[in-house]
Write a protein that binds this DNA or RNA. Structure first.
Lengths: 198, 198
DNA sequence: GGGGTCATGTAATAGGTTACATGATTCT
DNA sequence: AGAATCATGTAACCTATTACATGACCCC
């Protein structure tokens, strides 16, 4: 039922978006992604980028426009988006925005196995996490402040605000969790569980 | 500086935890994971499980204990956790709890490219997301209610509470975002951007 | 007792990351 | 000019997912 995309790496989506503006070669794509800080929200690495462009090409979403050799620099292929690529771009964006994607955050895994740690240790570790989360929140707030000063239109800040929302939510959650762990009843339960384990 | 784990798939962590309780064979591991609903927080599929167990074996974190052939059923290898495996388990759990891992949620990608959609369309799509998020929140609340009724110790509910926190945060965020999109100034800005694009 | 389906594993394929390679540029 | 660094790509290597395979069990 869930239509699988021919190319599913989110990098590909960014590539399509950038090629909407104008044709360019792969390296240039990478440069812009980094320049615009898109690599904060999209996992970026050069190897994957080349792979993804090739996949897009095979899938017919982009096409070679020409191969430039300006005597120096190895020859670079310039890509442009195709009609099918445009369709795919919009279809993909719509799906991403309209339907939540099931994710598996690493912290969720840890929580689902939390019982293996003693309450004391868990508390200590969570305290450290809390500190780092605080820094992250502060950093993101900084990015936002700076952007506002620079008159960046707010649409381009949605991702950072989202990031901040999530971090703040996690801070509240962890704070509560630490509170819960203090309950001496849990300490006892944990001891019993531990012993009852074969 | 970031120590890479020999086996990094989160499934492996669950395997180690389960083998702490008692030795068992791969299929049994899978069965329990599902039974306990761990597959809600850990991406699970059989193929990966076998792969992961093999990796753990190569890495010395688990070892074969014996190979049982009870005349029927193909022979199944029983694994047990090793000393090194125990160490790895605790080290890994500590890291997961204490330091936030950088994730790349799909919705963040969409947000970082939101500007390609018209404000009107974005609003409509976000509305649909909001509806689904509401259902998800409700479902998770249901799971929690049921678990509380069944006297499940709360440690085992941390993951669900976390999930709920995140969903609720996202609901607030999206609600705000929809509000922002209504600003007629943005409509104008968007039009201008669109035209100025080569 | 033959057709479905559950239990169990393996192999083929596709996807992604790291490591390497090579020419140009810049610095001293 | 040689060393260090940047620009650019490719290839080798892991990881993960899907598809396939096989025997047992269950039901009319």
């Amino acid at each position: 039922m869930v239509k699988r995309r021919k190319v599913s790496n989110p990098l590909a989506l960014a590539v399509l978006v950038y090629l909407m503006a104008e044709p360019m070669h792969t390296y240039e794509l990478g440069r812009r992604l980094q320049e615009h800080g898109k690599d904060r929200s999209i996992k970026y690495n050069r190897g994957s980028l080349y792979m993804v462009v090739e996949q897009l090409c095979k899938a017919g979403f982009v096409a070679e426009r020409e191969t430039v050799r300006d005597t120096q620099r190895p020859e670079r292929t310039i890509y442009r988006i195709t009609e099918a690529g445009r369709d795919e771009l919009y279809d993909w964006m719509r799906a991403l925005v309209a339907v939540p994607y099931e994710e598996y955050p690493h912290f969720g895994v840890a929580l689902s196995l939390l019982a293996v740690l003693s309450p004391a240790e868990a508390t200590e570790l969570l305290g450290r996490r809390l500190a780092t989360l605080g820094e992250q929140a502060e950093e993101t707030r900084g990015v936002l402040r700076q952007a506002v000063e620079d008159d960046v239109p707010w649409v381009f800040l949605a991702e950072e605000r989202y990031r901040l929302s999530l971090v703040e939510a996690e801070i509240r959650f962890v704070t509560d969790l630490i509170e819960s762990l203090k309950d001496p009843a849990y300490e006892r339960t944990w001891q019993r569980m531990k012993e009852s384990m074969t």
